[in-house]
Amino acid sequence: MAITFKGVTYDYQAGTPMSFSALKNIDLTVPDGDYLAVIGHTGSGKSTLVQHMNALLKPTSGSVTIGEREITSQTNNKDLKPLRKEVGMVFQFPEHQLFEETVKKDIMFGPMNFGKNEVEADQLADQMIDIVGLPENTADRSPFELSGGQMRRVAIAGVLAMQPRVLILDEPTAGLDPQGRTEMMAMFNRLHQEQGLTIILVTHQMEDVANYAKHVLVMDHGEAAKYGTAEEVFTDVEWLRANNLDLPIATQFAHQLTQRGANFTTVPLTTAELAQELARQLGGKRHE
């Protein structure tokens, strides 16, 4: 399911003295099966952008096409449900949305809103508890008794249980410890690989961008400042530096070496790629 933005502008509090444009004339296409990373500073419009992807926000001008549905400022708020089922959204700190008495009931909430019966929803919940890596005995416990990291998994399971075809992740690993972060990103990647889920990831973690994303969009003051593959975007080191954006650490390390006089044929994005390139140059013969 592709998502297309055509000349999208969004004004917060339009018509009041506090009005300001959070998005300015955005053109963007996210093809079906893509893994898009959206990066940029806090307040650059990343969250506003992704909330257009399941019609939580409607453009002030321009249009967003999600699959077959076109959303404009005139679109009625009714019958957006089929769309929201297809595009799942994991908000920042999604554990704040939990409310049910048990973990399982909370996970079943989404699917049942979208028309699944209790038996089907129950099965889906069991499946998702497994996928997100929650211990089985948590199913009948109150979500509020769990640790922060486990609550996060419950919330994510609740979105996955809707069986969306597009998954929007707004800084899904913020506040987790490194191990939890790695596990969670690996899980999303499995879903992307195995089920062909389209993923849109809003993040500050450049390592995640380097490891998983096919495309990268850089947002800056509400504008789409840069778009391309991870290699394309991270090649422009000077521009990223000037805009105070981080590089993946391996890319930065390679850039540092380039400054000393080293040569790289391609821009290494991950530690593994960097190591391969260095091993080749250092004459690690076993590799060749």
Partner: peptide, 12 residues
């Protein structure tokens, strides 16, 4: 934010 999160889970 909570309203949006629940809307995304199918609440009208």
């Amino acid at each position: 934010t909570i309203m949006n999160a629940q809307r995304a889970r199918g609440v009208d």
